[in-house]
């Protein structure tokens, strides 16, 4: 499991984890919360988004996917996105986990968790980070179809 927290601003707490094997999003969130926030009692809202691999795309059955990324830019872009979220909302903590490598249907691709005192910042910050990740973070998916061929996913849909 590789970790990269370069470029983070002091005080804007976050953890960004790129994983090469299957992960349990709620377990990793619980572990991070216990480690990073165990002594805190001032957060009242936790918003989670979990992206999971589907077994269909563009009308075709998908057997597996391979996720590639540009590691140095992934770290830089995700840290900038988290910094922007902190500028927009009173966020207390953030966790991003993203899978790379070969992945199968029903496995988690991404987890974004945002903690704050109240739900608006948690919901809005979580959605902002997720949408920005989809359009800025340099990850690419290659699908292996049940029919036997492979293809690169051309682009992400806007805000769906």
């Amino acid at each position: 499991m590789s970790k990269d927290v370069a470029y983070s601003l002091p005080g804007n707490i976050r953890e960004i984890i790129i994983v090469e094997e299957s992960f349990d999003p709620l377990q990793i969130q619980a572990d991070y919360q216990a480690k990073s926030m165990g002594n805190k009692t001032d957060y009242g809202a936790t918003a989670n988004f979990v992206g999971t691999m589907r077994d269909f795309n563009e009308g075709d059955d998908v057997l597996s996917m391979t996720l590639e990324h540009y590691p140095a830019m992934t770290a830089k872009q995700l840290n900038e996105i988290v910094d922007q979220a902190y500028e927009k909302w009173p966020i207390q903590n953030t966790l991003i986990v993203h899978r790379v490598g070969e992945i199968f249907p029903a496995e988690s691709i991404v987890l974004v968790t945002v903690w704050s005192a109240h739900r608006n910042a948690a919901f809005d910050g979580c959605r902002f980070i997720m949408e920005a990740l989809k359009h800025q973070a340099p990850f690419w998916k290659k699908e292996a179809l049940t029919a036997g061929n492979t293809r690169w996913v051309a682009e992400n849909t806007k805000g769906e």
Partner: peptide, 12 residues
Amino acid sequence: DEVAFFPPVTGG
């Protein structure tokens, strides 16, 4: 400089 060229990103 490190210059990178790539297609639209499709993470998440």
